[in-house]
Amino acid sequence: MSHTTPAIRAEGLRKSYGATRALDGLDLTVRAGTVFGLLGPNGAGKTTAVRVLATLLRPDSGRASVAGYDVLAQADRVRTRIGLTGQYASVDELLTGRENLLMFGRLYGLDAAGADERARSLLERFDLVGAADRRADGYSGGMRRRLDLAVSLIQEPGVLFLDEPTTGLDPRSRLQVWESVRALTASGTTVLLTTQYLEEADQLADAVAVIDHGRVIAEGTPDALKSQVGGDRLDVVVRDPADLAATARLLGDAVSAPASVHREEQRVSVPAEDRMEALTRAVRALDGSGLRVEDVGVRRPSLDEVFLGLTGSTATDHENDRERTQEVSR
């Protein structure tokens, strides 16, 4: 395999469940040794894509290769080269951390001594030595995820699939998982990571593809994507919904940019190219305006705004659309 051969290549993958198109002509190319982020809202087709690439699901049409092997014709070989960590940690809860690693090590084809050695080094690497002989059902969410990650690394896979590795984790555990993923790339593993969080893709990925309705709608480096979307945002939450319009006018004038109003959250949002300057101006304008403010904050653009930038509709709008359609069909 030459260095130009991509670690993952998917061409025109399609998969339908009844009338729902989970994958609708998905194309992907992931360079070897990089972290690739697959970004999209719930139901965009991220998990379906991972399941096809990890040989768990047959696509209706299209083709894909992982580590140089065809996922359909050479599934057995693909399985000797990949690791998979799903959305829910699928470690054996009744076994201890060490027993999990030993069992999966044997199933991966290591002999007893090899599995033992591998378990020892992975426990150390994932900071689980102290908990090694405790049952996994007593682990915290972050520890369980780390054990799951350790299991998926037993055979030192060339390609690792991480399907929403930090969903449901507290911030500290999330940081630990990120740390582990960064360490992986240093060892040359290719990582395909799915996430709903722009920040996560930004932190970890060399390249990102945004997918929606089962196809890629944008691709590039996280920076390129962000510049396409716009920079940070400044949010103001008001106490009285009646103040929303006045607040929007005030803030729009203060930063000289259009303000968007999110009625349900009683929130007004404006672009904040320079974080400090925008914050200072906004607070100055609000002070003495008589508007009662609950909260002010500056944040990175959310996935919603990426979507707004890319498709003109937000990720939550998609969900609302769906709800509305259901209501109509009722």
Binding site: A54, L56, T80, L107
Partner: peptide
């Protein structure tokens, strides 16, 4: 599903 996914992604 989740348990089976892990088993099936392995060369077992």
């Amino acid at each position: 599903r989740d348990v089976m996914s892990r088993f099936r992604s392995m060369p077992m």
